[in-house]
Amino acid sequence: MAKARALDRRRKSVRNIRKITRTMELIATARFKKAMDRSIAARDYTTQLAKILENIAAAGAGAVHPLLDVRPTQRTAVLVLTGNRGLCGGYNSTVVRQSLAILGQWKSERVATHVTVSGKRGISALKFRGIEMAEQFTTFEDKPQFDAVVPIGRRYLAAYAAGEIDRLDVVYTKFHNIAKQEAITEMLLPLKPPEPAGSAERPTQLASQEYDFYPSAESILEEILPASFLARLFKCFLDAAVSEQVARMVAMKAATENASGLIKNLSRQYNRARQSQITGEIMEILGGVEALKK
């Protein structure tokens, strides 16, 4: 009897766990949809900025700006975006691994690094490996606000303009589509110079339109480059948030399925144990009856 009862108890606890992981999966799905909507809504801004940049480049301006200067890297900044919470598969660990790779590379080249980490998971993982962090954030959840990202971006811009850093890399999980996200290191500063419209795949329409610039192409470029940097930085935060939810969704789905499999196996074992117990009891009774007959 003891074995069957123990099996039943285990089955019950697995069932409870399945309930929890299933709920977490549903929550992650809802959050993912919201984060995705925000990410899509933010896309227009980047597209429009890129369009203007193309037109400025087509007008002939655009090669000279402090943010476009490529300097030899002597001091660099790295921003690592991880989640605040676990239970999301390999999401945090792949970002941490990626960031360790780039930090190791800078260390071997003897480049001073200024490390900023967002997310409790990344902070504790990097602290464990003895990496010094200049700044830490734990305020970014599934809905990063642009207003919260701006001060961080402005600080990088000021540091870059003042020559305190020569390069900025962001390590985060890029969201390609729901089936594919990958941890990557993206260089945000120095900015890539804008390319004229028409040189790429989209040839006609825009390039043929002659734009006037008020006050001048150079002055607009001066304002638009920081804005496009901030937009790209914000995009990194949004991508990281969406990817985290997808990762959690997938991990919890797998956990739920695994729990269902366990329950199936445990039920089978339990039934077998119960049946053999009953058989044993019947055999005992029969044995007793035989003994009485004699």
Partner: peptide, 18 residues
């Protein structure tokens, strides 16, 4: 705009402004 108001109706010449 940075230096004052500007009205735009249909058919305005294309421009980019701050």
């Amino acid at each position: 705009l940075f230096d004052g108001l500007l009205g735009v109706a249909r058919g305005h010449a294309p421009f980019i402004g701050r």
